[in-house]
Design a protein around this nucleic acid. Structure first.
Lengths: 266, 266
DNA sequence: TCTACAAGATTACGGCGTAAGCCAAAACCT
DNA sequence: AGGTTTTGGCTTACGCCGTAATCTTGTAGA
């Protein structure tokens, strides 16, 4: 990991597995997974598509590299650390918020992390690295969990993050009225421009701040109208359904889940 | 929706949006989403690929039709009904198990239902039909929930199902050691044969029975070995991690979630 | 300087989604 | 019944996709 990579030194130009993966992630953020073709990535890097294969075995491997990038990004998050200085609860809390920060910053990429097939049935998304799994299991074990409780917490934590963040990132990446996604298809020749007008590249904290600030008026997209006669309840609740309370809800649901784990070990 | 459709009557052969969608679902079950190309589907139906476009506007629409098929399948499930004769808890319980039956029977298709982009941010997977959303919101409202509680229950239920079942179906559709998935890619020319040797077509109950019967020895795939020095905890817990306790865990976690909702309205 | 090799370029192939047009047969309307 | 319209499937063709195979070139090490 991170061999040398700077464009000045080394043999060719500044390409490397990580650089390619990073460019791919940027492309995914900007235009969706479907737009990240080998040719498009090459173009973005000023390079022919086939050159990517010097750093990546095939497209699957590239997408795996993107997932690795996500996991690596977690390690660089100053709030997320692999230590439980303040107890297991704080450890899981920080980890969860770190993962959520990524999901919010990269709503097009999160489904990738969430649904990419794993090598073993117990490598669960969204933490698909043996290193993190080891860290988590070990931390919980050291916190006094017995084996069964460790596994319960492991699965509870993963499925909670998976479900909630996939729901949230799904709400942030709506279908383009014309021209679908291509996210889960072979082929698909559409560009899938990011629909909401958001440009998810940096500034996670900034957007969070915005989302948190106005508390009850940040509705995302009402889908025009809902037929009142056919779906009266949906129609009545449409406005509240469209409100964005994700931060508070996530925090609260997370606390609830941790409570449940705590109750389990008591 | 069921116009006539029988091959004997009507104009052409027995094609229809639903028939095409059903064939697609079968292909997805057998070989994964990536294998369900227009040409492959046509071949399976004894028809040219372009003929499918008479019943479906494009491939995105076809995948939507598959999702519709899932929702429709729910309606035909005798245990799942859109009424709360026995209270909201029973209603949600039956619904959840119905969705899980589908996820277990169609592990390759569930990620599709889970990640397909929606038209509005409050249409959450896995219940992506206005009819079901209306049913659920209305039922909860009639059960005495106020608006805020309805929304809390709605989102809790959806994110729980999404996370748990995606985790479970992910564990049932592992990566083919050679040749990746193509599930989230454009292009991808691989067949992705179903890995576990399972043939998920009917007999959900039967497989459940098997899964339930032997309680502690149904491990799915150990991934060969895990390096003991690098990942000691994973190594130690590998066997238990590989065990399939999904049914009991799901049931228990579901009850916990319903408890949380119940506590919320008390 | 010579050699080996790694990084990127070129070419080419089969498969993909699908636009456009064609055609026979079923359905409909006197 | 006979003419017309509509429908459902077929054919052709185009551009994009992933990638196998091969060639070119600049650089590092001897």
């Amino acid at each position: 990991m991170a061999e040398s990579g700077r464009p000045g030194r080394g043999r060719g130009r500044g390409l490397s597995r990580e650089v390619v993966a990073r460019a791919t992630l940027e492309l995914i953020d900007a235009e969706g997974v479907g737009a990240a073709s080998m040719r498009a990535i090459g173009t973005r890097l000023g390079v022919e598509a086939m050159s990517l294969y010097k750093h990546v075995s095939d497209r699957n491997d590239l997408l795996d590299a993107v997932v690795d990038l996500v996991v690596a990004e977690l390690d660089h998050d100053p709030e997320v650390r692999r230590t439980a200085d303040e107890g297991w609860r704080d450890y899981l809390l920080r980890l969860a918020h770190g993962v959520r920060r990524f999901a919010v910053a990269h709503p097009h990429a999160f489904p990738l992390v969430a649904t990419r097939p794993a090598e073993a049935p117990w490598i669960n998304p969204p933490l698909r690295s043996l290193a993190w799994i080891e860290s988590m299991l070990q931390t919980l074990g050291e916190a006094g969990f017995d084996d069964e409780q460790v596994l319960f917490a492991y699965r509870s934590f993963n499925s909670f993050l998976l479900g909630y963040l996939l729901m949230e990132s799904g709400a942030r990446t709506l279908r383009d009225p014309q021209a679908g996604d291509g996210a889960l298809s072979p082929g698909s020749a559409d560009p899938e421009p990011v629909p909401g007008g958001l440009t998810p590249t940096r500034d996670v904290e900034e957007r969070e701040a915005i989302a948190d600030a106005d508390d009850a008026e940040d509705l995302i997209d009402p889908l025009g109208e809902v037929d009142e006669d056919s779906y009266p309840t949906v129609h009545r609740l449409a406005e509240q359904l469209a409100q964005d309370h994700y931060v508070e809800e996530f925090t609260r649901a997370l606390e609830d889940m941790l409570d449940r784990i705590a109750a389990q070990i008591a």
